[in-house]
Design a protein around this nucleic acid. Sequence first.
DNA 1: GCTTCATTTGGCATAATAGCCAAATGTTTT
DNA 2: AAAACATTTGGCTATTATGCCAAATGAAGC
Lengths: 114, 114
Amino acid sequence: MKPVMTQAQTHTQSQERLNSRAALLKALAHPTRLWLVEQLEQQERCVCELTDGVDADISTVSKHLSLLRQAGIVASRREGKQIYYRLETPCLLGMLTCIETALEAQTSKSCCGR
Amino acid sequence: MKPVMTQAQTHTQSQERLNSRAALLKALAHPTRLWLVEQLEQQERCVCELTDGVDADISTVSKHLSLLRQAGIVASRREGKQIYYRLETPCLLGMLTCIETALEAQTSKSCCGR
DNA sequence: GCTTCATTTGGCATAATAGCCAAATGTTTT
DNA sequence: AAAACATTTGGCTATTATGCCAAATGAAGC
């Protein structure tokens, strides 16, 4: 069978994969942004609802949401004066649970029930 | 039933939980560090083995490893002149797979097989 | 004890991030 | 069209992250 790509190409692809993963993790790697994602877990919310629960300037929250949107984690739609955000990748929630498990494992030294 | 903690306490605890999660994500949110974690997936490795695969200064790799250790993701042990690193939380690997799924969902618009 | 090898640490320059305020945008109401 | 409301954007400063080089540490061999 003919090789589909050169080694240089696989290297680049692997690099790209790592970059994508890292970008997604970086977008989530902030307490406020994690909280925002959690809030969107059940239902979409407008910015005003979200800012109520955060101790930060509205503009700061807006920038966090914008960052999450650029990372493809959330999406937004306008309805009248308000803008509603929703979670684009529900999968992430499972991931966050997994992180929790990993964190618990750190202290208890047992991991994933093993 | 008497409440176990005040609202201020639950708030603090929730805040702590978010901080811990964010810290773990932040530690992983770098292409080189993700690569290092992947390398440790199958077996422990010494620093010299790890530096071979990275296009960065040895000291840079060492600092990445140190950061991962502080986050509780890896642990190290000395054997003679070399220092071996190993993955402390194998759970993380499942998480990374989950991230991959989420990333694919971003483009294909289908998520987790749904 | 001095040299060599493997790794870490300190120091520094550069870049990226976070958060506030003020100004701008877009929408609805009057 | 002006005022009010919801949100975003620009600009600024402070903090943090990244990565290299050089120096320090620690173990092994001579």
